[in-house]
Design a protein around this nucleic acid. Sequence first.
DNA 1: CGGGATCCTACGAGATACTG
DNA 2: CAGTATCTCGTAGGATCCCG
Lengths: 127, 127
Amino acid sequence: MTSSTTNKQPDITLAGCGYSRVLEIISNKWTALVIYALENGHIRYGDISRRVEGISKKMLTQTVRKLERDGLVQRHITPTVPLTVEYSLTPLGETLLQPMKELRQWGRTNYSHVEEARGNYDLKYSK
Amino acid sequence: MTSSTTNKQPDITLAGCGYSRVLEIISNKWTALVIYALENGHIRYGDISRRVEGISKKMLTQTVRKLERDGLVQRHITPTVPLTVEYSLTPLGETLLQPMKELRQWGRTNYSHVEEARGNYDLKYSK
DNA sequence: CGGGATCCTACGAGATACTG
DNA sequence: CAGTATCTCGTAGGATCCCG
């Protein structure tokens, strides 16, 4: 009941909006990149680490754990010596791929426009 | 040249990936919700404030300024007394709508599964 | 009405060192 | 190889007060 009385549109709540739910999952610094690395099937911990440039072990583990907890990623352990640990998307995780690819595509095709807009804005308001 | 020599897949770089570029734009706490509020055309500052539940003036202004700087949102000032300020998406901003709607839809239909997975995970590892 | 300016705090995330 | 454990720091973001 936070709406003004004449408001015909529903409120947008942080907790209830699909946006926030998804962003809660993929919006930290490395998550999307790790999912990207998992797009083509099973991949080992060390290989993710090498593919995702600049990620530390701490952040990789933390990211992959959170994704596992969210049911988007599976962990497969082979008890060789030393250990072999592979990760892959779950069926649920794979359903995220399509929307995320479109987002990525948007970034690729439109980011230059955003950068240009930033340049113009800064020029306009710097002096 | 950070790839292992036998790596056939390209590296995933933070700066170069479309994911990070988009997330840099929409991944903070309120941005997606504000864009959501702008979906149906022009809307006044105070009306956004009322529709997006819980947002403070500071965060609303900050969010909308950033979106303006990124070229996704336009600001229209009508010099009435007191001021009337309306916001709307730019053409560039509107191109973001489609991918974001799919993301939102994913959240709506799949978040319950994520919550369930979290419950199972916590049960499994709590003891 | 539509902001700006400050102060403050929790948390994301990097660096470094250790382990089964 | 695949992680854990600390320590530290910057910053997102909330609370509060002021302004044209």
